[in-house]
């Protein structure tokens, strides 16, 4: 259990997917303008990450590895993710329209979110067990949400600031992201300290 907690909190704070591993930068910069869309996007990403791990891990361990087809994992994983995302979109659109309007609109963009494919591949690369993989994916999703929500708050102020003309807009956003990322460096080592 302690080990699982270490994996979870490392993924959230220390090895934050967005600010430390640079995965999912496009939605991080694109959807962080409004708090409500930041929350919707994060919830959708966390859900897809967990389900993608739950689907790809058994397929890798039961099908690809025993038949030494592990070189096909990128092709297989991305297909599973694409199919799952499309299926979820169709299902919630048909049966839960309110959920579709708050979360579903972000789903098509998630297939090409590198954080989702990244987390499934990293779980295999780090030789995690199934439980460890699920906790790592949960941590990645929560970390993504944390980064997105913090940054949505920062951005509202950056956009209102009076900046040199050259830095207005995207450059200022990136430099604000740099400062937020720097603050997360402060968490390095904290997880091992807490669960010692």
């Amino acid at each position: 259990m302690k080990e699982l907690m270490i994996i979870l909190f490392s993924a959230i704070l220390v090895e934050n997917f967005v600010l430390n591993k640079f995965m999912g930068i496009c939605p991080f910069l694109g959807v962080s303008k409004k708090m409500s869309s930041a929350l919707g996007m994060s919830a959708a990403v966390t859900f897809v990450m967990l389900m993608a791990t739950a689907l790809t891990y058994p397929i890798y361990k039961l099908l690809l590895e025993p038949f030494s087809l592990d070189y096909l994992r990128v092709v297989v994983f991305i297909l599973i993710i694409a199919l799952f995302v499309q299926l979820t979109e169709i299902i919630i659109k048909r049966f839960v329209p309110p959920l579709y309007h708050s979360l579903g609109v972000y789903l098509p963009l998630i297939t090409t979110n590198c954080a989702v494919l990244g987390v499934t591949i990293l779980n295999i690369d780090n030789t995690y067990t199934f439980a460890q993989s699920m906790f790592n994916s949960l941590g990645a999703g929560v970390g993504f949400a944390l980064a997105l929500v913090i940054f949505a708050g920062v951005r509202e102020r950056v956009d209102a600031a009076d900046l040199p003309k050259a830095f207005k807009g995207i450059p200022a956003t990136l430099i604000a992201a740099s400062i937020v990322s720097l603050s997360f460096v402060g968490f390095s080592g904290i997880v091992e300290g807490i669960f010692k």
């Binding site: 830095f167 807009g169 740099s178």
Partner: peptide
Amino acid sequence: QSAGGFFVFGVVIAVVNVISHYKISKK
């Protein structure tokens, strides 16, 4: 570090912004 990556990218975009006569700011 990762923070430096964001910073350098931001500054490079700012330079391109000046060269391209602030085309990026409008984006």
